[in-house]
Design a protein around this nucleic acid. Sequence first.
RNA 1: GCUCCCUUCGUCUAGUGGCCCAGGACGUUGCCCUCUCACGGCGAAAACACGAGUUCGAGUCUCGUAGGGAGCACCA
Length: 465
Amino acid sequence: MKTRFAPSPTGLLHIGGIRTALFSWLYAQHNNGKFVLRIEDTDRERSTDEAVQVILDGMAWLGLDHDEGPFYQSQRFDRYKEVNEQLLEAGHAYRCTCSKERVEQIRNEAMSRGEKPRYDGHCRSLNLDDINSVIRFKTPTDGQVIVDDQVQGKVIFENSELDDLIIARSDGTPTYNLTVVVDDIDMEITDVIRGDDHLNNTPRQINILKALGAEIPNYAHIPMILGPDGKKLSKRDGAASVLQYRDDGYLPEALLNYLVRLGWSKGDQEIFSIDEMISEFDIKDVNKSASSINPDKLLWLNQHYLKNADNASLVKPLSELLKAMDLTIDTGPDLEDLIDVQKHRTETLKDMAEQSVLFYHDFDEYAENAAKKHLRPVVLEPLNVLYDALKSIQDWNNEHIKSTIEEIAEKFEMKMGKLAQPLRVAVTGTGISPSIDDTLRLLGQEKSLTRLRKAIEFIENRSSS
RNA sequence: GCUCCCUUCGUCUAGUGGCCCAGGACGUUGCCCUCUCACGGCGAAAACACGAGUUCGAGUCUCGUAGGGAGCACCA
């Protein structure tokens, strides 16, 4: 068997498209079939190179690799022309010279009569041969088309509801319903998986398929996904490029896991590795109703995958994000050490990068509330003593750092927190950071001492003024 | 307007006539843990759109109503 993903590069590929691609890819993997990537760029005015690049890069980032393609429809115009001629010759299609205005008028009239707007077949039996006219497909006037959909079930369409659709524009270029059919035949696609916005196109395509004497593939029309508000996906909640998720620090496996659970499930299971998805996924189990995306759940999944990720595997994507923030990686801690600490406390790699800035740059000033609360004269002496103790540590590791802080706290009869928190503010500028020993260790002895010294001076200046 | 599709906690979902006064997850929330923020642990609140029918029995089957979505292009 063979499935395909056939996006149109007229807008940037977003997570709705990715979910369609994922389902199609999983279905192919599950059945040991092939997966084809086809770029439907027949609308040359609206297609952009950028959109094509996003499709290619996005699929690669997520690991949704194709076995064949990418095929570009814009390179197959000769083939479509050939099929159109064939249909014309066989009497399955005809040339039509009706003006757009006339067609428009017919539609309006039909609408005002409460009917479905359709072309009236004016040129159907005129046998015109005007080369500059459009070509229409002769849709059967009676009977019905039954779409036996793997997700939607049996859906019946009356041919009388359909009209003679245009399969070639007056400039000779082919239109969507023709190119899809020709390509699916030529590429030997056995299973068509796409968004349910195409369900209404399916009977037209089946009629063309039949006229061409081709086999009808299996269809699966999966429901669309909606924004968190239950409305159509908008740019800000996922309709922008998939690559935005990469740049925002999401992990491919988290996004895929999130998407696979949208409209599909296996009992109560929430976490699926790629291998589990492949072995468990069946297109027949996909729900028929649309679902809204939930950014919080995606975040939770991302955190889950981050926590369980291999440190080394995060080095590269994290460095990209650090570089994008103009941070010089050499000036900070070893990345694997940093990741080992931060991955347990951040939701995305971007959070991780942002929360790690303190290891690269000195901060300009203390967070006001934190300084007011923790950098007070009472801690001056303990911090001074702590400074000397930290300075004398030979081997700068968690154990030594922690025991040193505990010793000093004990000496001054302070609770650990009473000393750790001022120290934290001293070296990070804020009240939030990894555990104090991890923080100091990652920061390094030299930077830790310099910042502590500065904090001590800060308290002295503040109390004297 | 016409055709097609959909409807279980806020959200994703389990549920295929009795196991369901509806289970899990995210989120929300209470407590515990704790050097901060997180993590984690233990609890809580929260749903079968509505109305008829079929049946001993309906979230589960049928019909209707309401609400939502898609399509009806010389776009894909």
